[in-house]
Amino acid sequence: MAKMLNFRCPSDLLGAIDQLGQQRYPADNNNGCDRSKTLIDIIAAGIKVLSDGSIEVSVSKTSSKTILTEELKSVIKDELLSEFQEVIKRELTGVKQEVDEKLAAFCERINTTEQFESTPKSKKKAPNLLVPVKGAEIPAPEEKAPNKNPAQKANTLTEVDKEVVKQSALIQIWLRVENNNKFIRRKKKVREYIERSCLSYYNAQKVTPSGYDYLVTIFYENDEDLDKQVYDLFREMDSIADMDYCFIEVDASEVGTDRRW
């Protein structure tokens, strides 16, 4: 069973084939010969001389090198692409983990703020931030004496000896609250929260309605106790601000003395 063979060849080679065919198999057509028979003879003769070693055809090394170079390029390309994909995968995993951690921290702070704002007003500590009249003296709040029934009056001297006598200090606090960056708008709410949850405990009073100065009264046993209460107050206010993406600057001094914090 004969099969068809198609191939391309240069025009000068095709002319030589037709010239040989016109000698062997002349025909009345455009080529002047029977190309098929001519090509069969040429191929048969070529196979014979190549098989018995009469003629040796040199193998082109350039084509082999070109093929190897292309294969090498393909292998290198695949390896680099695989490494690049692994690097991107690791980077995306790290970014996703960091985003998840920051989102969890942000949600926790939001929940804390929402829980406080949703607390009924009756359960919140009411602030005592009265604005004093200019020129008027600010009386220091008096500490309430413990209740005693008649049966205890006989032991009054003994109980007084056991009680620790506390002093009071009038402290002026300068407090500045600022947002961490221009995209945060929380400093007003943070200041109000600090006034309600921290300063009101010390019967705080604003020196001016829109100013940063407060007057608080702190009862203490000794100098170490006073220092501890002041610095604890600073830390508590700073923690509240930090939880809501803000920061504070604070300064305190005792009225009538040179003591400062």
Rank of each mutant, 00 (worst) to 15 (best):
M4V: 10
M4W: 03
R8W: 09
P10G: 10
L13G: 00
A16R: 05
G21Q: 12
N30P: 06
C33P: 14
R35V: 13
L39G: 00
I40D: 06
A44G: 08
A45C: 08
G46P: 04
V49F: 11
S58P: 11
V59P: 01
V59S: 05
K61N: 13
S64Q: 08
K65N: 05
E70V: 04
E71M: 11
L72P: 00
K73L: 00
V75P: 01
V75L: 10
V75A: 08
V75N: 09
I76A: 08
K77Q: 13
L81M: 13
E86F: 02
I88L: 14
K89S: 07
R90P: 04
L92F: 03
L92M: 11
K96W: 05
Q97T: 11
Q97V: 08
V99W: 02
D100P: 00
L103T: 08
C107Q: 12
C107I: 11
N111V: 05
N111Q: 13
T112Y: 05
S118E: 02
T119M: 10
P127M: 14
P127Y: 11
N128E: 12
P132M: 09
I138C: 06
I138D: 01
P139S: 15
K153W: 14
A154D: 09
N155D: 12
T158H: 07
E159S: 13
D161T: 10
E163G: 07
E163Y: 10
K166L: 12
Q167K: 15
Q167P: 01
A169D: 07
L170D: 03
I171Y: 04
I171A: 01
Q172S: 11
I173N: 07
L175H: 02
R176I: 07
N181C: 14
K182P: 05
K182F: 13
R185N: 15
R186A: 15
R196C: 07
S197K: 13
Y202I: 04
T208E: 15
Y212H: 08
V216Q: 01
F219I: 03
F219S: 12
E221W: 03
K228Q: 11
E236V: 14
E236N: 12
D242F: 13
D244N: 15
C246M: 07
C246I: 10
D251Y: 08
D258S: 02
W261R: 09
